[in-house]
Structure formats: C-alpha cells, structure tokens
Nucleic acid binder design. Sequence first.
DNA 1: GAGGCAATCTTGCCGATGTCTAGATGAAGC
DNA 2: GCTTCATCTAGACATCGGCAAGATTGCCTC
Lengths: 190, 190
Amino acid sequence: MTSRDTYHHGDLRRAVLTAALDVIRTEGPAALSLRDLARRAGVSHAAPAHHFKDRTGLLTAIATEGYDLLAAALSDATDLRDAGVRYVRFAVAHPAHFQVMFQPDLQRAEDPELQAAKARAYERLRAKVAGLTGDRVGDPELTGTAAWSIAHGFATLLLTNNLDRSLGGRAPEDAFWAVADAMFGTGGGE
Amino acid sequence: MTSRDTYHHGDLRRAVLTAALDVIRTEGPAALSLRDLARRAGVSHAAPAHHFKDRTGLLTAIATEGYDLLAAALSDATDLRDAGVRYVRFAVAHPAHFQVMFQPDLQRAEDPELQAAKARAYERLRAKVAGLTGDRVGDPELTGTAAWSIAHGFATLLLTNNLDRSLGGRAPEDAFWAVADAMFGTGGGE
DNA sequence: GAGGCAATCTTGCCGATGTCTAGATGAAGC
DNA sequence: GCTTCATCTAGACATCGGCAAGATTGCCTC
C-alpha cells in the first residue's frame, strides 16, 4: 500500500492511523514520525497534516478512538468484575491506543471530541459501579476508584513487561481474574 | 545558573538531571530536548552527551535514579499496606521519575545499572509481601501482583489527572488508604 | 454536460533537534 | 612542571515538525 495510481489516496486518514498504531505498538509513541508515516502511506510528507493538523492532533485522534473502543468493550460487561476483565483485554488488544490514552502530555486536552469520548467511556465504568448489589457496595465513588485502579494498574504493569513472571503461562485476562478473586473473594463482585 | 565563570561546569550531570526532571514534570518526556537542557545549564549543546551518551541515556539514568529512590522509600515500610501508601507518595513526590520508569520505550532496557536498580526495588516489594501474616496470605505471587496493581493503578491514574473528582479534597495518600481499606477491609493488611 | 468550489495532495522552505567528529581547556596525578 | 584524561566547545549533517503556495481532482450546482 506504499504506492498508488491516483492523485488522491482514498483513505489516507485510516492508513496513517493504522501505520501510527503499528509504530507505537512496536517502538512506542516517541518513535512516531509524521514523515515516516507519510512515506509508509506513499504520500508526500505534508499530506498527513491535512487530516490531523499536527503530531499532537494525530495522537489526540488515536486517544479519542481508544476511548470509543474502550466504551464499546465495557458496554457489554455483565458486572463490575467482568468490566475489569474487559478492561485488561482491551489493553492487550489495543496496546497502542492504551498507551496514548494515558499520556496526557501527548494529547490536546481541550479537544471537544476527545473530551466527549473520554466522558462516554467514564460513564460506562460508572454504570457498572452503580449496578453493584449486595453488601459490598459501600461508597460508590470509592468502589469505582478501587476497581479502576486494580484493573488499570494490572493492565499498565502488563504492557510495561512488569508481570512476565507473575503470569506463569496464563492468559492475561485469566491472571487478572485470579488477582481480582484474591482481592474481593469468590463471588464477591456479583 | 545559566552562566558560569569557569570552563568546567562543576556538576553538569546533576544540573542536567535536575533541569530534565523539571521539564518532564511540567511538560512531559516528549518535550525534553538535550539542547534546551544544555542552554539551561549554560553549556554548549553537545556537553550533556558526554555524561549521558544520548537522549535515551539521560532517560535511562532518570529511571535508574527513580528505582533507587523507590527502593529507599519502600524499605522503611512497616507492612504491605504501608508500602502501598509509600508507593503512591513516591509517585506524587517524584512524578517525573515515575513517568519515565514506566515507559520502557524511553529507556535502554539492557543497561546493567538500570536492571540492578530495578531488581533492588522489586526485591523490596517482594519482602513486604513475604512479611505478611494472618489468614489473608494465600498465594504470595498473586498477593504481590494484586498489591502492586492497586497501588500502581492508583498512582498512574492520579498523575494522569483521572482521579481529580475522586479525591474530594483529601491528600492522595489518604485517599489511597481509604481505597485500600475498602478492598481489604479494616485491619486486613496486618 | 459545463463550470465552480472545496477538499486533498505536492513541493519547497525554515528553524530546531540528535548525534558525530575534531579540537580546546584545565584539573589531577606523577 | 609535565603528562594524561575527563570535560567542554565548535562545526557539520541528516531528519523532523510546521508553514505557505500551488497543483490535482472529486463533487455539487446550474
């Protein structure tokens, strides 16, 4: 896909996004170069700028897409613990999105689309906390922070290669289930 | 400190490190420029390279220093829960170190000093897990991963401005104590 | 079907950055 | 006092992000 016959690329925005996600996943956000992405897509060096304004704009678009993907992943969760498993699964499936989402210095914080997507994802998490029943409810704000912290911490440590020894051959989501089980006790999340 | 009388700076390594930490804390690692740091220290643009080899070398040195600071902070902890509080306190006190430590793509992973410091800090955490008594011990590996995840997740979300609403005016370490309390139950960590 | 408009892409340019090389300076040890 | 070597300077080169001006083309309207 590095050459083309037509003057217009056709779907340059998607091509640049895909290439960017590939670079970020394998080499990290610091290695990302707009000119390199342009070369990969077979366009001139200034072409991507028209779709993303600048480097920060591209990263902001990636974060926005990430929050939308996360919101979609969380919406199908049956309960809070399942949401945690899906959170970890999302991080593993979309490591590039995840990395960019949680590095605010790479994004344009005031971007309205980013803020909206972020709010949608956050609302999904809040809904799962509100859906809690039983005697383990307590302060919803506190419970939400605790659940988010454990899932986010596990996912982050996982993507930074800090849990390699702890996995013991298990799939990440299974390992997270075991961790959540150790904290909340069997069946405590229902 | 941007000018000097002598040809030699005296402590350029420390000056560059301090300036770098300041930039990272306020603008993030992406905004870090070796030439800018050189200007702040009042030396030529190539001077920092002699102390850190290159940009990655500087960031690796910061990560190494961070792991040593973390190990020192954890060594005084009375128990596992206290270690968690100290982990969060470390992240708040040294946000620049913390950011760099957990972005492996910024570091030279094969650096022996980095690996050694990382191992020392990890050993401190493992010691606190091993010191657990009572009926909540279970699988030490699992307990360690759970404790690390909750503390690391809380710290990360805190530094990325995702817990602003949840703090409610409390100091971060107090808020973390409440979260840990909600998860483990009162006195469960002793 | 012809004309105009706006989106898309190209080309050229500028300042800034990381890194390499060769050379200047001076502190420390003999 | 002389040597040695770590430290710092000066210059050069390739690359990058961003800007401006112009070329190309899809699309809408009449």
